[in-house]
Amino acid sequence: MSGSQNKISVPNDGSTRPNGAASLRRRFSWMHVREQAIHFILFCCALLSVLTTVSIIYVLITESVVAFPPNTAFFQVVSLHEFFTETRWTPQYAEEQQHFGILPLVTGTFLITGISAIIGLPVGLLIAIYLSEYASPNARKWVKPVLEILAGIPTVVYGFFAIRFLTPMLIVPIFENWLGMTVFGKNALAGGIVVGLMIIPMVASLSEDVMRSVPNSLRESGYALGSTKFDVSSRIVVPAALSGIFASFLLALSRSIGETMAVTIASAGFAKLTLNPLAQIQTMTSYIVDVMTGEVVSGSTVEKSLYAVALVLFMITMVMNLISQWVLSRYREVYQ
């Protein structure tokens, strides 16, 4: 520390106070100003995240719910009733044939999410149980980085895998050649499978964390009563960690709802209200990408529909994230 900053020497100003107290008086010093300025700047950095949320909400609301007078918002053109009950989503048609009913997009999104949940959640949970209960430290040392690799692969790569490998080499031989069903080149099944693959590492690592934080005394008391390893893991560890596992499931599902590129490449085509996993579907995310990568007229209803779809997407994922945050924090309070 430089000498100029050490200004705690006692001033001899002839005051009646004892000298010791004079140094405790608040006096102007550049160092204090600097500290305060740094404090303020860092606070602004922290506020930036709040600003991000606010601007996301502002952008989505002003384009979809209420707009400033010269502009019109999406819900001022399309009624809420039509938006949530109409079963056709045809923004690409001419003005009079346009229908904006979000149901096909929501069905498509939940079809993908459902398939990915069927694949990703049980496998992820089993891997988590294996890692926390069965695996030797050596095996854990190898499996965890590989799972991290799986988590770090960009989503376009998963999309490529789905459309160039899964569909032609797995789905078409099984469902079309063997079972005789019609398989589209882009189908929801391929997209759902790769999204399921994507959420496996997330479920596995989050669930493993909560299972490992279950106190060992619980396990030991189980063993002391003569339980097998299976009993301990299925009847003690998993129930004890259930809320944490639930939270990790919710986070994974919100990730698969928001998943974009893999789904766009593997499954997205025409928006149609269907639950057939072998047909083309359109999700909320891939609709946004489809419109934005094509020609979009600025200020048109089609462009505004993007913001309405994004708003629905944002709300769904935010609610799921909030619930899982809440569950996780409750869980931490119980065991830590």
Binding site: I56, R255, G258, T260, V289, L313, F314, T317, M318, M320
Partner: peptide, 11 residues
Amino acid sequence: AGVPSIVYGIL
């Protein structure tokens, strides 16, 4: 951290 990346894209 859990907001879909596409929403950031719209932003």
